[in-house]
Amino acid sequence: MTAAQDFLTASSLHKAFDGAQAVDGVSFTIRQGEIFGLLGPNGAGKTTTIRMLSTVLQADAGDVTIGGFSVGRQGDEVRRLIGVCPQELALYPELSASDNMIFFGRMAGLSGREAKAAARQNLETVGLADRAKDKVDKFSGGMKRRVNIAIALMNRPRMLFLDEPTVGIDPQSRNHIFETVESLRDGGMTVLYTTHYMEEADRLCDRIGIMDHGRLISLGAPRELKARIGDPDQVTLESVFLDLTGRSLRD
């Protein structure tokens, strides 16, 4: 395979909170049209990394370019290219699914009509078209997560950030989300996906960066990572993490 174009380049990102390094010199590239996973336990620095990449948190040091634009200097251009689905459910529970989406769509610069059309289409994508008018508050955890993702698609982004989109949901919603992400990737979208579930990363991601204590400790396709410690058909990413850190991912 010829080297696909890099869509995102992060080099030696640093971020400290109150003197504690949350992200400590992280570098990686994400190729256009791939699903790139950041895998690591809670507190590894995944969310902090995503926040810096998506322009909401200023890095202490390091550079990021997305689609050729600098995150530090060309934030506006970058924000047009990206859709962000935060780890927490960042939506208005008292509004209907479609009203939530229309609002964020308008904030992304869509006209009223465009926002309505995009809301309909994206609710279709996440399988909630029939619940468009229902209050988000009444939704199950899985359905709320799907709305959270759908909102991130409102501005037709070329790159999607998904921060632990499957935490605490039923298997059916989880599968639905997997299928959504895969079909978005197949449609040409670049995806950054963080998780602390290694099966998820294994199944979904084209390449994975394993994070621990703010550092990227390994990077490669799931099979490559597993092949480094044994027969890739036998070992799991869990044992890869154990081998790298001496700890279990679940701790």
């Binding site: 909401v56 859709g83 935060p86 960042a90 964020f104 904030m107 610069g109």
Partner: peptide
């Protein structure tokens, strides 16, 4: 924070 990833 989410609004900060839009054009706002």
């Amino acid at each position: 924070e989410r609004l900060m990833t839009t054009r706002l």
